[in-house]
Nucleic acid binder design. Structure first.
Lengths: 295, 295
DNA sequence: GTAATAGTGTCTTTCAGACAGTATGAC
DNA sequence: GTCATACTGTCTGAAAGACACTATTAC
């Protein structure tokens, strides 16, 4: 199998809550994700990720899952092809030795829909202009679906598709379609295609919290239901219906009270801890096929 | 970035229905998935997969998505590390020039729960024996969850986890835990870890049909609802409630009648075609977070 | 006629979404 | 007392699951 010269690297999207805001770990000096080549000493790709993140930022990662593998030719401009295997990691908010946390919503301002609804104020008109250019109906429809226009619902986990639309429309600075359009809302950029990789991670995490109890990887040992909800809202970038959220959490037996309480300004809130048992049980979660017991 | 010598290859899990049975494409002579090194000529990994599958089996793949990247050291015993990027592809049942279709359920007999319920007859006792060996409760629980014991539901998309359990229990021939256990039910093996990769593909496809209309990539241009249901049942390895299935399909506007009919032994069935429009629309599908319109 | 597959109508249970109201702290 | 947050109870409408029945072919 004599192939071309190939380099293999791992790329890490490490997420934590810093003061309640979802952040991604970057190198201290540049807006880059931690990354490094796969070395003979690494037993597996996971090992490689953990090693490089630790070396570059002093942080030891807990939860880690594979995200996606990128390998387009000349991704980095060098002659050889680089295969980048990206990983999504979650840590409980700590301060890394040498890394720097960058807020999701400084990088993707349009992804935060928790606050007042002027979110799309400058972006949406620019999008509509772009969609109107081509007489193609599909471009218009694509904007509508990804950004929830024309009465469609906003879907948090379409973060990657939204980034791709903005990229194609020339509304983010790194886009090759150098545009005359106002890119006011387009957020901070990162090196190379790291912002795209991050968007992949955001999308994956938003999708995953809907059917796996991964949120708890970001929470401290004890927390109130209010804090848990705030965490979910921060990740989803969307407010959540309080009462229904509580019902959902309780009836799935995801947490148990510790007996202690926390004063948070109003009535003291019960403190809860995550029931680790459900990690084993919780392979459950709904299938949608109308299955049948017996024929 | 001077790293170690690395080889990059792509690995294809190509699925089609052959006489209504889900099959995977293998090389004609050996039970191996189509694979090949990434060459300088390949623009992307997808391109590489399409090229190698076409070269080795004469089949041109339609739908293709990335599955997982494997890169444990010495996966194939050679000195250099091989990074294998696996892909899942779907084709409408055609006869490949040089490939060979192998039935899912010859490879994974325990995954077919459509027929009479003696499926686990020989496997379950062996599993229970293994789970009973260690006093560890978790091993027992793991079997129960993956294989739906102790009154738990059978979950089709846990195919990979089930394979892993059998592997660890020494109940598949390729397991290093060479066992004295009866491996009667353990199915045909494949080269290397290809059976594990296939299990990953099976699991992914079973999960995906629940929230994306990918089934239609396996169906001919026209089909009856009965055929569609049989296809879903074949993939899921489980019978499906007929009336509810029809309601689901119709109310989601996934198909439209062509006006023609097909005689299938009983009352002639209406023929339908897939509504391609939904591929754009169908980003929809349920989020489970109790979102809220306005605060 | 029977057997076999196709297709319709409806009932019940479950659950997501929404609203109203009570509880307990700080000030 | 007011304000703010925490927590509980209940209504409603939309689906999922299940059942009974009718329709149209081959034999």
């Amino acid at each position: 199998m004599s192939s071309e010269p190939i380099a293999a690297e791992v790329l890490a999207v490490i997420v934590a809550l810093v003061n309640g805001e979802p952040c991604v770990l970057s190198l201290p000096d540049a807006p880059r994700l931690p990354a490094g080549p796969v070395l003979p000493g690494h037993r597996s790709l996971q090992t490689a990720v953990r090693a490089w993140v630790e070396e570059q930022t002093g942080l030891s990662v807990g939860y880690l899952e594979q995200l996606y593998t990128f390998a387009d030719r000349d991704r980095d401009g060098s002659g050889t092809r680089t295969i980048s295997v990206s990983y999504l990691g979650l840590v409980r908010g700590l301060t890394p030795r040498a890394g720097r946390w960058r807020g999701w919503y400084e990088l993707f301002p349009w992804e935060d829909r928790r606050g007042s609804d002027d979110s799309g104020a400058t972006l949406v008109p620019a999008l509509k202009a772009w969609a109107g250019e081509a007489a193609v109906r599909t471009r218009r429809q694509r904007c509508a679906i990804t950004f929830g226009l024309d009465g469609r619902p906003w879907q948090p986990d379409l973060a990657l598709q939204r980034y791709e639309v903005l990229y194609e429309a020339g509304l983010v600075p790194e886009s090759p379609v150098s545009s005359s359009r106002s890119a006011a809302q387009a957020g901070t950029r990162m090196d190379g295609d790291h912002r795209r990789v991050l968007a992949t991670g955001v999308a994956r995490l938003r999708a995953k919290i809907q059917y796996r109890p991964v949120v708890f990887e970001l929470m401290p040992a004890q927390f109130t239901l209010g804090q848990l909800q705030a965490c979910v809202e921060a990740l989803a970038g969307q407010p959540v219906h309080t009462q229904n959220f509580r019902r959902l959490v309780e009836q799935q037996h995801l947490v148990e009270p510790t007996g202690e309480h926390a004063g948070t300004g109003g009535r003291p809130a019960r403190l809860y801890r995550f029931r680790r048992e459900v990690l084993a049980e919780r392979q459950v979660a709904g299938t949608k096929l109308p299955s049948v017991r017996a024929r």
